[in-house]
Design a protein around this nucleic acid. Sequence first.
DNA 1: GACCCGTGTGGGAACGATGTCACATCCCCT
DNA 2: AGGGGATGTGACATCGTTCCCACACGGGTC
Lengths: 347, 347
Amino acid sequence: MTIERRSAPHGRSRRPTIKDVAEAAGVSRSTVSRALTGRGYAASDVRERVLRAADELGYVPDIMARTLKQQVSRSVGVLVSDLRNPFYAELAAGASREARERGYTMVLADTSLSAEAESEAAEALVALRVAGVIVTPNSSAVSTYLSSHGIPVVEVDRQFAAGSTDGVVVGNRVGARTATGHLVGLGHRRIALFIDETDWITGYERYQGYLEALSGGDIKVDPELVVSSGWDVADSRRRALDMLRGPDRPTAVFAANNVLAEGVWRAIGELGLKVPADISLVAFDDAPWMSMVSPTVSAVSQDTFNLGATAVRRLDARIAMPEADSVTTVLNVGLVQRESTAPPPTI
Amino acid sequence: MTIERRSAPHGRSRRPTIKDVAEAAGVSRSTVSRALTGRGYAASDVRERVLRAADELGYVPDIMARTLKQQVSRSVGVLVSDLRNPFYAELAAGASREARERGYTMVLADTSLSAEAESEAAEALVALRVAGVIVTPNSSAVSTYLSSHGIPVVEVDRQFAAGSTDGVVVGNRVGARTATGHLVGLGHRRIALFIDETDWITGYERYQGYLEALSGGDIKVDPELVVSSGWDVADSRRRALDMLRGPDRPTAVFAANNVLAEGVWRAIGELGLKVPADISLVAFDDAPWMSMVSPTVSAVSQDTFNLGATAVRRLDARIAMPEADSVTTVLNVGLVQRESTAPPPTI
DNA sequence: GACCCGTGTGGGAACGATGTCACATCCCCT
DNA sequence: AGGGGATGTGACATCGTTCCCACACGGGTC
């Protein structure tokens, strides 16, 4: 980078345009454009002169003008639910890196789980003429809206428009089955499930995985043990306190995401229960704290950074071939066994 | 939001422009522009007709064209070091919320602590004609470069260009003094400092705070106890292992950020040391895991979300008054006392 | 009745970059 | 010598929006 060498456009405020470069180099605007973009002819000495002039003036092409002319920008929109959740933060980090590598700039909005914010953001992205959008959707509205405007969409983590838009998800069903199956294998028969939603495909799949593992162990499902908790730590903590204080409490809990796991963890601690002696815990989505607390928490680990990166790659491919069939990529997950699981307490 | 009601521009691909709206409403482009933006005259019945036509066509004004014409966009750039660090993620979340509320879209890049990525991103932001930039800088280059292009900059968390650009930081010196002073008050005399850099102003201030607290307790500084660790967990863990295994180890550690604290925490655990009986620990920057581990970790808490939000407010004010004197906002911090500190072990 | 003002509206020139097209060389081949 | 390809360059229209200006109309004042 040559940032240091560049000086302000001799003290004045107006930014240099391609016209200024053209005058400085003694050629026409067209020639400057060709020399800088590399599209079309430009004699090497002329190119040289143009490049030097541009560098001296600190010329940076105006993306607005370029996009207006070309009708397609090199930026992608990224819509995530909550940056404070390490899952989304890491997703965004992965998207950011991959976007940079592919020459996209990233327009990011935290939609705060609000449908209104999501709609607003979508509209802003249309207005910005982004080349494509990556979204962790809260409804099918965003994808529909963006698609109707001809903007490619990749749904990440969960899918509402499978079949009509691309998606990148993880093996939710198999992950949930593995986690629950691990508990079953240890001898647990009363296994609680904490989950946010079962209507969205991700929650549904995790729920199904849970059910499959139970039926694989010939265990009847107890609806009392399936908690459709809210989306925040406080709520799942409260629900967990209720359940664990009640009679006939479960001997193990499978928490379907890192936020719910945190609530359950806190509840367990407050009640003075010992993990894993009194109760086992497995989470879906490995958050940093799970390997720091004592005992450490077993979790189904998803490569979240890669999830974001893969989504950008998919989007890039889609932008290149808008008419190709939609594809859903499923990333592998793996159970990380730590210290939070053991056979149920003998009575 | 009326997203659902809108249909694609009758199956065709071209996006509706202001001209299409004008034709549909039977008026001129100028009139449509006035009706939609609210700048200039427009009879109420005409305005009505225009709004309806725009809604029916699903018209969204082209920001590129608007920005090109107006020479100023409603988007801000946000450059953070590492989204996977909860500190930066929360900062970005705060910035995102405030940006949205003020009608800005946010262009975000994770600069991965790389000067090259930072320069590239800065150049992209100039090209995008952003209204301003918020950055957690790694050098003075970004601020200088952006300023030379007439783009307002707000430096957050650390400052390289104090006096010439705005800044939003926290009370680093007082926070470090409080934390260290707390340890001194408990009777500790061998207090180690883990810090990333002392050249940048933030590290320098925290270092000074540490020194002040020591001299306030009439404690001579032992250079052996000041570790200029790298920026990642692995490195600080290694450095901590070395120190804690050595002879005459400290009775307390002050870790100057959440990453270093994590490394130290892991090292302490691996060595089987008991917190706080064998060693006390205080961190600067309260990360989520600190209230989840056992024992919980005392920390100087900064309102990181607010740090991001404040930066956007400052930037907004700066954009409104580009010539005003530069100001640096210092946010308060507070020591959150948890379980990781106690008097030193009696020998 | 001439003038002017207030209220609306449309025409057209920007904004900065791109890319098509026409044209201007030069050199080589027949 | 003249045609024609290869190589380079410049003029100009264009992208979608804004906004300055001109103008039209009606009604009031002198």
